[in-house]
Design a protein around this nucleic acid. Structure first.
Lengths: 146, 146
DNA sequence: GAGGCAGTGGGGAATAGTGGGGATCCAGGC
DNA sequence: GCCTGGATCCCCACTATTCCCCACTGCCTC
């Protein structure tokens, strides 16, 4: 098996009237495979997993179900929000309107590469979520960028 | 895999109208690999990691995400500032305008080799950041240059 | 003095993002 | 049963950006 695709960077693209967004070319190149899974993991963001990374998530879900019966409904909820998406010949993916609503997407979509997945955000909500996190640099940077 | 590249010294080069800077030839020779990751670690400086060093950072980021859910937004912030950059055939890298703004870069860029990465500074801000730190010599030098 | 390397500048071609047309399929209504 | 409206999918087309390459200059070496 090849190296797992990894993602980084941010791109803001338009969500057209048909509910499509272009997947940034670097992301497309990274995941030369075709299929992705799109779902809501950390609301309000959507998460887009390339197939290979999704399989690992699936394994972990199986594990949780085995060890913790209370997780059943949570797993149901997560899985029911998921869709398999395949880029069209122009490299765009279709975001079902149900998921657009969950993530408050319209007009512009911010796509952020976060290691093994891509997160889709309403641009201003993302701004609000990460602003004021400069203080955390002192907390985390020494152990990460040592 | 070969030895990790290490960098030292400072070079001031021009940022041209297309947003490109030449990577100093010694740095290029050191990292004969092609790809780098450019991001904002300690504002206002930018950090340029050769691919091999970046992979280690990425592993540590994965770890922090797993162990400390509070780190999520900080990781998002860091990853969203990142870009993969590849020197062109003249050995220049392109600095996206978003990052130029973050680091207040224009005209001249100061590139400092700091062990496993290269930092990019606005020359006068660098001046301000390190000035008045002479006293620290007495504090650190004995244990380092013993 | 000639050759090579390094930094800088710029132009042309391939690519990426975006919009939209048209065919196919399904559901509902007449 | 047939027609109609809507949704989905697939492909074509336009344009601005990006990137790739060629070219110039100064310096250092041989």
């Amino acid at each position: 098996m090849g190296r797992m695709p990894t993602f980084l960077g941010q791109y803001t693209y338009t969500l057209d009237e048909k509910g499509r967004v272009s997947l940034p070319a670097p992301f497309r190149r990274e995941a030369e495979e075709q299929r992705f899974v799109l779902l809501q993991v950390h609301p309000p963001a959507l998460a887009l997993y390339p197939e290979s990374a999704w399989r690992e998530v699936e394994d972990r879900l199986r594990g949780v179900l085995r060890n913790d019966p209370d997780a059943r409904y949570w797993v149901l909820r997560v899985m029911s929000s998921a869709v398999e998406v395949v880029p069209d010949s122009q490299g765009r993916i279709l975001i079902p309107s149900r998921l657009q609503d969950c993530a408050h997407l319209s007009g512009q979509v911010l796509m952020v590469g976060v290691i093994d997945k891509v997160e889709l955000w309403n641009p201003s909500e993302f701004e609000g979520a990460v602003e004021g996190k400069e203080g955390d640099f002192a907390r985390y940077a020494p152990q990460i960028f040592r």
